[in-house]
């Protein structure tokens, strides 16, 4: 990734933050409040045991220009996951990395598949629940005889269910 692109990405983040502040100004109409709620963006990825991406999804508002930056940030956080995962016995590792106002939360299954969620400021509990529910879905996918471990998850049912979970816990 070129530095120019990275810089562009950072600029965009800055713009995003500015918008955020404006909307959070007291006295804003209900409409703008609604936009604040919708403006939360999430990027979710499942990384297989051999570090290949198995599944990715975006929830909330999606900005085309952030797409590669999000992947980049999550990818960078994988190394931190490797460090943190042995410090705790649980699956949920909480926030492992930060990038401007984005936070990367991670969840490692016992078989070492990693769930990565890139999000803006957000309490831990819903994220924990989201991960746990996704873990359950992931397990069911693994149990499907037609699914081969460590290959991309192409099932539309899985995709739909993950989006439902995101709506329930995150957005």
């Amino acid at each position: 990734m070129s530095t120019k692109f990275l810089k562009e990405g950072i600029d965009n983040v800055q713009i995003g933050m500015d918008c955020h502040r404006e909307m959070l100004q007291p006295g804003g109409s209900h409409d703008s409040m609604l936009i604040v709620v919708m403006a939360a963006s999430f990027y979710f990825a499942i990384v297989g045991t051999n570090d290949s991406p198995l599944y990715e999804a975006e929830f909330g508002i999606q900005r085309e220009e952030n797409k590669y930056l999000q992947q980049f940030v999550v990818h960078a956080a994988l190394d931190l996951v490797d460090d943190v995962q042995f410090m705790t016995s649980g699956c949920y590792l909480k926030a492992v990395d930060r990038y401007n106002d984005w936070t990367v939360s991670a969840y490692v299954t016992p078989s070492n598949a990693r769930f990565m969620l890139l999000h803006e400021a957000k309490p831990e509990d819903p994220i924990r629940s989201f991960f746990a529910a996704c873990h359950e879905l992931y397990l069911r996918t693994l149990l499907n005889p037609f699914y081969e471990a460590n290959t991309s998850i192409l099932s539309q049912a899985f995709d739909a269910k993950v989006h439902t979970l995101a709506k329930k816990y995150l957005i």
Partner: peptide, 9 residues
């Protein structure tokens, strides 16, 4: 139970 056929199948 657990089974989901690939679209091709």
């Amino acid at each position: 139970d657990f089974c989901e056929l690939p679209p091709r199948a």
